[in-house]
């Protein structure tokens, strides 16, 4: 505003009074007017719509939780939907990763000095693996953005987290051969589920002739995680 006025004033010359420039703008309807009119009207109304400053904290948290829950549902029923890709977040992956790491940590609960590395390593494996897969898909010419891919890979750990829960329950009940067979079946089913879900989401963004190359590291990633879950024994 001020800059335009000043420039206007300078252009109009010395003879006019102080606010002559402003009057010229409002009346004459010259070329720069168009920009002046659209800016304040257009920018203000959406700001007021999306203002989250004065809403209760509960609303904010619930909105995010709902978004995360919706994505969980998407992973459990992997349809061809782009909701997981369109508005990505890393809350779900973080929650799943921490859950997985915490539950896998119980293994060495008797020897106290091993707790740290266990948690850290599960954490690192998940994030490092996801980053490697993402970079690989980018290198192969995928058209997906970095965090979208991380989001999908993180959310698709959900079946494996469920598998770990089931495994712990089975271990409580029966730790013999029957228990192992049940765990093996559950983990294998959930491993297949994770891989299929993530490929269903990610496959569209890859060049069609290279899908196998992209799927292989995903397969390896979930295989290592599911195998960690299977061999877990507290």
């Amino acid at each position: 505003m001020a800059a335009v006025e000043e420039a206007e004033a300078a252009a109009d010359g010395a003879a006019k009074p102080l606010f002559a420039g402003l009057a010229g703008v409002s009346i004459s309807g010259d070329i720069p007017v168009e920009g002046e009119i659209t800016v304040p009207v257009g920018s203000r109304s959406p700001d007021e719509d999306y203002s989250t400053l004065d809403e209760p904290v509960k609303d904010t948290i619930m909105r995010d939780l709902k978004a995360v829950g919706k994505k969980f549902v998407h992973v459990m029923y992997p349809k061809k939907s782009s909701a997981l890709l369109r508005d990505w977040d890393l809350w779900g992956p973080l929650i799943l990763c921490v859950l997985l790491a915490l539950m896998l940590q119980g293994r060495s609960a008797d020897s106290t000095e091993d707790k740290g590395p266990q948690f850290a390593e599960v954490f690192v494996i998940i994030w490092f693996g996801a980053v490697v897969i993402t970079l690989n898909s980018k290198l192969l010419g995928g058209t997906i953005s970095f965090f979208q891919s991380l989001c999908v890979l993180g959310y698709c750990i959900l079946p494996l987290t469920v598998a770990l829960l089931v495994c712990r329950l089975v271990l409580l009940a029966n730790s013999g051969t029957v228990g192992f067979v049940v765990r093996l079946l559950v983990v294998m089913a959930m491993f297949g589920w994770s891989t299929l879900a993530s490929t269903a989401f990610l496959a569209d963004s890859q060049p069609p002739n290279r899908k196998a190359l992209v799927v292989y590291p995903i397969f390896l990633f979930y295989f290592v995680i599911s195998w960690m879950i299977l061999t877990f024994a507290p």
Binding site: D114, P117, V132, L140, P217, V224, W227, T231
Partner: peptide, 29 residues
């Protein structure tokens, strides 16, 4: 691509070998 994936596969196989052998599992290390 092939070499990188083979190296990652080798990492996974090594982990597998460590677990199925009688090594005390210290996964992190």
């Amino acid at each position: 691509y092939g070499p990188l994936m083979l190296v990652f596969t080798l990492v996974a196989i090594l982990l597998h070998g460590m677990k199925t052998s009688d090594t005390i599992i210290r996964e992190g290390t």
